[in-house]
Design a protein around this nucleic acid. Sequence first.
DNA 1: TGACAAGCCACACATTTGTGTGGTATACAT
DNA 2: ATGTATACCACACAAATGTGTGGCTTGTCA
Lengths: 200, 200
Amino acid sequence: MEEKPYLTPKQERVLNFIRKRVRERLPPTIREIGEELGFKSTGTVRDYLKVLMQKGLVRRMNNKSRAIELTERASFKIPIIGTIMAGKPNLAYEEIQGYVDADDLFLGRLGFDDVFALRVKGDSMIDAGILDGDVAIIKKRPNADNNDIVAALLDNNEVTLKRLRSKSGKFHLEAANANYPPIFEEFKVIGKLITVIRKY
Amino acid sequence: MEEKPYLTPKQERVLNFIRKRVRERLPPTIREIGEELGFKSTGTVRDYLKVLMQKGLVRRMNNKSRAIELTERASFKIPIIGTIMAGKPNLAYEEIQGYVDADDLFLGRLGFDDVFALRVKGDSMIDAGILDGDVAIIKKRPNADNNDIVAALLDNNEVTLKRLRSKSGKFHLEAANANYPPIFEEFKVIGKLITVIRKY
DNA sequence: TGACAAGCCACACATTTGTGTGGTATACAT
DNA sequence: ATGTATACCACACAAATGTGTGGCTTGTCA
C-alpha cells in the first residue's frame, strides 16, 4: 500500500530527528542535525540529506536556512484499527489498517479559507444522523446539487441546515424529520455540508 | 473570553504573515518579512518583532535563523458563524462567534497516543445518529460508565460499537436500532467513543 | 511646547548557516 | 581488481541572517 524506500538505521535516525524538529515547529539546520547525531562535519550531514532527497523523503531549497521539508504529510494521524487479535490485552497495533489524516478528514484537501462551522440546533435533520449540538463544517458556495445538504439563508435572516431538493426545475428545502414540513419560501444557499463532527 | 492585545493594522499584517508562513512550514526570516511587507530596512522589521514580543504574541531565540515562535496554539481554526446579516451577499465574518480548534474538536485536549479510529459498518447505532461509514474516534480505556458508547471486543473477535448498559450490576451492550437485540454475551470494553466524524 | 509612540530607513558588523572540495575507511558485489 | 554504497572528517568560503546604532517623519496627548 505504501511505498517506503529502504533506509539504513542511521538514515532513519536523521529523518526522525528532522521529523521531531518539524513537529516542534522549526526544522533543524545542518549543524544542529550534526550536533544531535554526533557528526563533527557538516559534510556528513549533507551526505545524509542528499540520500534522503534521492529517496524522495525530503525536499530542500538552496541557500535557505532550515529549508528542509518533509514530503510526507505533517498533520497528525490517527490509526484505523480493523479486527482485533483474540486474547490480546492491548489493541493489536500490528493490525492497523491505515491512518486517518486529521486535516484530511476535516476538510478533504480544501483550504480552510472558505470553510466555516455551524453548531446545529434542533432535531430537524435527525433522520440524516445530524443531531442537536453537532458541529457542521460548511464549504462556502452559492449553489449546490440536488440532494446535497446545505446551509441556507432564509428570508427571516435565519440560517438553517437542510437538504436541497429540486422538483420540476424548482429548488426547495427539506428537513430530515417527518415533523418538519418542506420549505418552499425564498432562500439562498450559502454553503454545502462537507463534514459533521460530534463530541461525546 | 479571549485576551487579545491591541494591535495596529500594520502590526497585524506582520503577525498574519508570520502565521501564514508558520502554517506553510517555515517561519520567515527578518528579511523575508520586510520583503513581503515592503520594508526596506531590517531594522523596521525588528521594531515590529519587538512590539509583538512585548505584547506576548511571539517568542524568539537570539541569533537563530527563523526562530520566531507564535505563542498561540498552532492548530488551524474554523470560524463558527452565528446569525447572518440580511441582504449581505457574503458571510458576515464580523459575526463570527468563535473558533473551533480542529485538534480540540477532534480529541478534546487528549494526546493522541491512546486514540484510534474505527470506521463504522452497518446501521446498528443509527438511532444514535451514527451511520454506516462514519469514523468513530475512540479513546482507549478498559472500562466505561453506564450509557457510554463503547468499542467492545466480542468473543468472536469482532469489534463493535454499542451503548454500554448496566442492569442490576451486570453490564451488557445495546444497539441503537430496534432491529438489533441487546448483547449479553461476554465482551471486553476496549475504548470509549469520544467523537464521530462524517464526511459528505 | 515637549514627550512619546508608531513607522519608517541606511548601513556596518557579527554570527549562523549552507556549499563545496578533497580526503579516509569499511563492506559488499561483479 | 574495480566499482559502488555507506559512513565518516577537515576546512575554506560564500551566502543568508540576526544585531545594533543612529537617524528621520508624523501624529497624539498633556
